[in-house]
Simulated scan of single mutants.
Amino acid sequence: MTIRVTVFGENVHEQTNRVVAEIYPQGMHGCIAATLNANGMDASTVTLQQPDHGLTAEKLAATDVLIWWGHAAHGAVQDAVVDRVCDAVWGGMGMIFLHSAHFSKPFKRLMGSPCNLTWREAGERERLWVTSRNHPIASDLPEHFELEHEEMYGEPFGVPEPLETVFISWFQGGEVFRSGLTYKRGAGNVFYFRPGHETYPTYHDANVQRVICNAVRWAHNPAARIADPNDAPNTPVQQALEPIVEHGPRLHHDGDKGLR
């Protein structure tokens, strides 16, 4: 079964920043989708500028895993679309948040926390250490890999305790950060992956591409989607229930000896 992936790209920096446009001529979303398609998946893209940001009910129903990249326009994402996305995750759609999507409306909704962190944009070296070597998302990766230039994210990271921490990053300035976190929300698998600042060619890196492909396979839930995860069905009783009888110690009358 081919995994159907939708890549949401904010598509703002690509239109306003010449450096970003040169690194990602098809947009960051286009670069990520091309990697997934080259690895046997069925990936398509949607952007903020489309009606409903491209994330209609029909599109989400046909999406096994949704990847989200956002940064400059978190506030422009329609709340109705956020509701729709989160309901799909609760119902079983996989979800992957990349880089500054930690502050996106869907991620904050699913985490139920501020999702804040410290940051510094200085083009520093980032070394990502695999902290869970047997995790499927870390499959075929070395014990660590490096990105020559990235934006620094530092702890504390205001998110709930994850199911598992797959990666921890170290930066040249000395900071560390939990860079790969897994969660379960309803029937949906959720993964946050830190790298991906727009002015660096992070999504062209082979190890980053491998992480994203592995994460899609991990996040995919092949079970049928729960139609309405908010529905708690009431099943009426069809016949009278038998009364519950409490059985305590039995007293036996033994003639003149009385009860015993």
Results as ranks from 00 to 15, higher is better:
1 M>C: 00
1 M>P: 02
5 V>Q: 13
8 F>W: 14
10 E>N: 13
13 H>L: 11
15 Q>S: 15
16 T>L: 08
17 N>D: 02
19 V>S: 10
23 I>A: 01
27 G>S: 02
28 M>L: 10
36 L>A: 05
43 A>F: 03
50 Q>I: 01
51 P>E: 11
52 D>T: 03
55 L>K: 04
59 K>H: 14
64 D>I: 05
66 L>G: 05
67 I>G: 10
69 W>F: 06
69 W>E: 10
73 A>W: 03
74 H>C: 08
76 A>W: 05
77 V>H: 08
78 Q>C: 12
81 V>C: 15
85 V>T: 10
87 D>R: 15
96 I>D: 01
97 F>M: 14
97 F>K: 10
101 A>Y: 03
101 A>T: 10
101 A>D: 10
102 H>L: 15
102 H>D: 13
103 F>K: 14
108 K>F: 00
112 G>E: 15
114 P>Y: 04
114 P>C: 09
115 C>Y: 00
120 R>M: 00
122 A>N: 06
123 G>V: 10
127 R>Q: 13
129 W>E: 13
130 V>N: 02
130 V>S: 04
141 L>W: 02
142 P>N: 14
142 P>G: 09
144 H>C: 15
149 H>E: 11
150 E>V: 00
156 P>M: 05
159 V>G: 07
162 P>G: 04
164 E>G: 13
166 V>N: 12
168 I>W: 01
173 G>F: 12
182 T>F: 13
189 N>D: 14
191 F>C: 12
191 F>L: 15
195 P>A: 07
195 P>S: 09
198 E>V: 08
199 T>N: 08
205 D>P: 04
207 N>G: 04
210 R>I: 05
210 R>E: 11
216 V>M: 09
219 A>W: 04
220 H>Y: 15
220 H>Q: 14
225 R>E: 06
229 P>A: 09
231 D>I: 00
231 D>E: 01
232 A>F: 11
234 N>P: 03
235 T>S: 12
239 Q>Y: 09
241 L>N: 12
245 V>I: 07
247 H>C: 02
248 G>A: 12
249 P>G: 01
254 D>R: 06
255 G>K: 13
258 G>Y: 15
